[in-house]
Design a protein around this nucleic acid. Structure first.
Lengths: 201, 201
DNA sequence: TTGCTTATACAACAGTTGTAGATAATGTAA
DNA sequence: TTACATTATCTACAACTGTTGTATAAGCAA
C-alpha cells in the first residue's frame, strides 16, 4: 500500500499544487462553456497560475483534457472494481454500464460538448476499454485472434454506449437494462476455446 | 442525369475555382507535413487566395479537412459502386476492403498523420459506413434493432480496418483476405428475420 | 450595353499561442 | 542554518487566428 498510482508518486508539492489548480479551473470552465472556446489563458487566469507554467505541465489544452479524461475514467472503472479483475458476464455488464454512465455524465457536466471534446473522450475511453478487454481475453483465451476480438469488442461497446447516450426521443432504458440488452452482441467475443454450437439461444 | 451531386450544383464559377484552389493546396500540403502544423496561412498562400476568402468558405482548417475526407471517401465508395446499392455478402466484403484501403491510403498520402487528422478521418468515415449499413438493413430488415445493428456493425468495421492498417510487425494480409477473415464477425448484424441455423458455413 | 449582385482582395484589428530568458520563490538535503 | 536544485513568475516576442470595413472585380440578368 505504500506505492500509490504512478500519477500520485512523490512529487514536488509545488507541482501537485499547480496541476491540481489547473485541473480544477479547467473542470469549472468546462461546466460553463464548450471546450473549444476555452483558452489556455482562461484556465491559467482562473487557476491563478502563470500561463508559462501551464506549458511546463501540458503541451496544450488538448493534452490537459486527455489527462483529465484518463484520470476520470480510471476512477469510474475503480468504482466498480473493474481495474484489474477477471472476466465474467457480470463484469462485462458492469463495464458497459460504466461506459454508458461516463459518457452521459460527460455530456451533462459540460455546457457545450463540442466535437473536439467528444472525440477526445472517445479516443481515451475506447483505449482503456480495449486495454481491459485484452486483459480479460488473455486470461480466458479467446476463440479468435486476441487483438481482433479485443478491438471488435471495445469498438462495439463504445459505439453502442454512445448511441444509447444520445437517444433523446423515446425515454431511454436505464444503463443496466441497456447493458443487459446488448450483452449478447458483445459476449460473443468472450467465448473460450470450446465450440458450444448454437444451443445457447 | 441533369442533376449532379449536391456538391456540384450550379455554383458561381468563382466559388468553384476558389474552393478547388484551396483543396488542391491543402492536399499538397498534407503530403508535405502533418495536419496540425498546417496553418490557414499556408493553405491560402499556396492557393494564391486571400486568407479572408478562406473563411468565407470554411469555418477553419478542421472544416476543410472534414469536407475533403467526406468527398474522398464518397469517391472511394463509388469506385466499387457501393453508393446506393443493396446488401449482399460481396458488397459487405467490398465495403470492408474500401475502408481498409482508404485508411492505409490516408496514412500513405500524409507525411505525418497526427491524431487530429486520424480522428477526423475516423469520424467522417464511420459516419458514412453507418449511413450505408442503415440503408442495407432497412432493405433486408434486421433481426435486432436497426439502429443498434447499424451502430455495432459500423464501429466494428472501422475498428477492425484501423487495426489492420496498423499491423506493422508481421506482414499483414491483403485487404481482401482480411475482409474475408473478419466477415463472420460483421455478417452477424445482417441476418434477416428467418433463422437459418448455421448451415451456411 | 447597363445596372445589380456577389465574390474576392486588401489592410488593419484585438486576442491567443507557444517559446525564451531572466528573476524570484520554494522545496530539499547536508 | 546554508547551499543547491527545482519550480514558478514575469516579460517580451513573433506568429497565427478570426473578424471587420472598404474597394475592386467578376458574374449575371434585363
Amino acid at each position: 500500500m505504500s506505492k500509490k498510482t504512478a500519477s500520485e508518486e512523490k512529487l514536488d508539492p509545488r507541482v501537485k499544487r499547480t496541476r491540481a489548480l489547473i485541473e480544477q479551473a479547467f473542470m469549472a470552465l468546462l461546466a460553463e462553456k464548450g471546450f473549444s472556446s476555452i483558452t489556455v489563458q482562461d484556465i491559467t487566469q482562473r487557476a491563478e497560475v502563470n500561463r508559462a507554467t501551464f506549458y511546463a505541465h501540458f503541451a496544450d489544452k488538448y493534452a490537459l483534457l486527455e489527462a483529465a479524461i484518463q484520470h476520470a475514467f480510471r476512477l469510474a472503472l475503480e468504482k466498480r472494481t473493474l481495474n484489474a479483475c477477471h472476466f465474467s458476464e457480470a463484469n462485462l455488464r458492469a463495464l458497459v454500464v460504466t461506459v454508458c454512465e461516463f459518457i452521459s455524465q460527460s455530456d451533462a457536466h459540460c455546457k457545450t460538448c463540442d466535437s473536439q471534446f467528444e472525440t477526445l473522450v472517445e479516443k481515451e475511453v475506447r483505449r482503456q476499454i480495449q486495454e481491459l478487454v485484452e486483459l480479460w481475453l488473455e486470461q480466458i483465451g479467446s476463440e479468435i485472434d486476441l487483438k481482433t476480438a479485443a478491438t471488435a469488442a471495445s469498438w462495439t461497446i463504445y459505439g453502442l454506449a454512445l448511441q444509447w447516450s444520445r437517444e433523446k426521443g423515446k425515454p431511454r432504458p436505464k444503463a443496466e437494462q441497456f447493458a443487459e440488452q446488448i450483452l449478447p452482441l458483445v459476449a460473443v467475443y468472450f467465448k473460450p476455446r470450446e465450440v458450444s454450437k448454437t444451443a445457447q439461444g
